[in-house]
Amino acid sequence: MREPTQPRIYGSDHDSADPYTTLSGREYVPLDGGPLDGQLLDVTGLTADERTAGAYLITPHSTYGPGGRASYGPTFTRPDGPWVWEGDVS
């Protein structure tokens, strides 16, 4: 199997034909650190306030086991990305 040259898109199905292809007209931010490190998050539909707040993302590898959540958000110095891991939440 070939190694992907692009990061995986967060939320893509594991059996997806190509979980590494970004879609034209969509905006993505990279996730930095934690269990989702290196993946891209589609933030196209988020408002400015939602982007500032960040998100709790479901992950198969968290402190709380499969289905736990990891908190990711922008930093003050780089509000447009990447979003950094802030820790796991239950």
Rank of each mutant, 00 (worst) to 15 (best):
P35A: 05
T47L: 04
R78D: 13
G33F: 01
R69N: 11
G33Q: 02
R51S: 07
D42R: 06
G54Q: 07
V84F: 01
D80Y: 12
G68R: 00
G45A: 13
V89H: 05
P30S: 15
R2F: 10
L31D: 05
T75R: 03
L31R: 07
P30A: 15
G87M: 01
I9R: 05
D88R: 01
H14V: 15
R69K: 12
S16Q: 09
L46C: 05
E3G: 09
T52A: 14
V29K: 01
G73R: 12
Y72G: 10
T75G: 02
L41P: 00
G38L: 11
P7I: 09
T77P: 01
P82D: 01
G87H: 02
G25F: 07
Q39H: 10
S12I: 06
G87L: 02
T47D: 03
D42F: 06
R2W: 09
G25K: 06
P66K: 09
G25V: 08
R78C: 05
L46H: 03
E50G: 07
R78V: 14
D32L: 15
G45T: 14
P74R: 03
G68H: 02
T21K: 14
R51A: 06
R51K: 15
Y28V: 07
D37C: 08
T75F: 00
G11C: 06
V43L: 11
P4L: 08
D13T: 14
D42T: 10
P35R: 00
H61W: 09
G25M: 10
